[in-house]
Every structure is written in structure tokens, then in C-alpha cells.
């Protein structure tokens, strides 16, 4: 336990980096996921490039994507700092996963609801924002929450592109002190607690968005 206490500031700094990477990459992934998930239902000229983006980023590992951003792009004249690389890399990768979730929810959205919107003479945009998304988001939320937990765990990959996140710091401590068990325990607990926070947030949001019209009837 002493080890952990002695290195607490280092670990807290690492935790800060992990949280920062996860939150920023998560926001990017959600924004990308919703935008591209919607775009894939658009005209082919838009849907196809987006489809390729999703397949490429889903089909290759996040680690390789980070390495390309960090080691290959500078050779082509584009040098990004490690934090930007981590956020953009993980954001692009998990954006592709989110995109699939959004697309799935939109594809499974009941046709009858869209038809009711036509019968009420709503525009396409109104149908999307007032009818489709409020309901579809609720379907997506649990899956998007899971993806954010996955993203949190994948964020440890940024330690391999020199970012001093929690995993990076714990490994340094292991190397310096050889107290592997303590350092590993910190990682275990910290990631678990963060994951629980994300899950709790997703559930709370789901209850808030759907509670009024869905939650109450489930109790019935």
C-alpha cells in the first residue's frame, strides 16, 4: 500500500490523462457515430464513402490506427501531439462502432411511426428530430454506453504512443519498485470504477429520456 501512497500524484496524473482521452475520444466517437450513422441512409454518394470509413476502422485494430497516426503521418508531414493522436485515433475507431449502432437503430425504427409523420405532413428533418431520434436514441443508449466502456479500456493503448495515462504510470511504478501486485490492483480498481461510472451515467440518461413514457408503464 505504501507504494501506491508514495506514487499517488503520479497515478492521479495518469488517471487525469485516461479520463481526458476517454471523454474527448468518446465525444468525438458519438458525434461521428451519429453523423455517419445518419449519412449511411443518405444518397449513395455520401453513404458509400461513409461505409468505407466504417469498414476500414472496424476492420483494423485500434493499436495499428494509433501507430499510423503517431509514427507514419509525421513521415508524410503531419505531426500531431500524442494527446491529439490518442483522441483522434480512438475517436475514429469507436466512431465506426457507434455508427453501426446508430444505423442499426435507425434501420429497425418502426416504419409505421414514419408513416404517421407523413400523415401529419411533417418534413423529413422534423420527422428525424421530433419522431425518430427521441425514440431511437433510447434504443441506442445501452449499446452506446457499452461502447464507451470499451473505449475506456482501449484508452490504455495510448500508453504505447508515449501518453502518460494511468496504465503508463502504473507500469512505470512496476518497473521502478517491482511491486507488481499493488500497481495492478490500482489499475483493476480504477478502470472498474470508471466503467461503473459510465454505465451508471448511461442508465441514468436512459431513465431520464424514457422514464416519462416508458419507465412508468414498465412498472404497471
Amino acid at each position: 500500500m505504501d507504494t501506491i501512497w508514495n506514487y499517488r500524484w503520479l497515478l492521479l496524473q495518469g488517471l487525469g490523462v485516461t479520463v481526458q482521452v476517454t471523454v474527448l475520444a468518446g465525444l468525438l466517437a458519438l458525434a461521428l457515430g451519429i453523423a455517419t450513422g445518419l449519412a449511411r441512409r443518405g444518397p449513395p454518394l455520401i453513404a458509400w464513402p461513409v461505409h468505407i470509413y466504417v469498414e476500414v476502422f472496424r476492420g483494423t485494430s485500434a493499436l495499428v490506427q494509433l501507430f499510423v497516426l503517431f509514427f507514419v503521418l509525421p513521415g508524410m508531414g503531419l505531426r500531431l501531439d500524442p494527446m491529439t493522436c490518442g483522441v483522434v485515433g480512438l475517436g475514429l475507431c469507436y466512431g465506426a462502432y457507434c455508427s453501426e449502432v446508430v444505423r442499426g437503430a435507425l434501420n429497425n425504427f418502426p416504419r409505421a411511426q414514419r408513416e404517421a409523420a407523413v400523415a401529419l405532413n411533417l418534413t423529413g428533418t422534423q420527422t428525424l428530430t421530433r419522431v425518430v431520434l427521441p425514440q431511437a436514441l433510447l434504443v441506442m443508449l445501452p449499446q452506446l454506453g457499452n461502447l464507451m466502456v470499451e473505449l475506456l479500456k482501449a484508452s490504455s493503448l495510448v500508453s504505447l504512443i508515449t501518453l502518460a495515462d494511468l496504465t503508463f504510470q502504473a507500469r512505470s511504478i512496476m518497473r521502478l519498485t517491482l511491486h507488481t501486485v499493488e500497481a495492478m490492483s490500482v489499475l483493476l480498481v480504477a478502470y472498474f470504477v470508471l466503467a461503473q461510472l459510465i454505465s451508471f451515467g448511461a442508465r441514468a440518461l436512459e431513465a431520464r429520456l424514457g422514464g416519462a413514457w416508458r419507465g412508468r408503464t414498465e412498472e404497471r
Partner: peptide, 21 residues
């Protein structure tokens, strides 16, 4: 099958057409 919007109250269901369109 009615096809009401489940996330809107009865009042909102009826008011949404006039409001939006």
C-alpha cells in the same frame, strides 16, 4: 394500430401536427 408517438403525451401528439407543419 393507432401509430401514436409513444414519447409524446396525448396533448403533444395532437398539438405536434399544427405546431410543426
Amino acid at each position: 394500430q393507432f401509430n401514436l408517438f409513444p414519447h409524446m403525451s396525448a396533448l403533444e401528439n395532437v398539438a405536434c401536427g399544427p405546431r410543426l407543419s
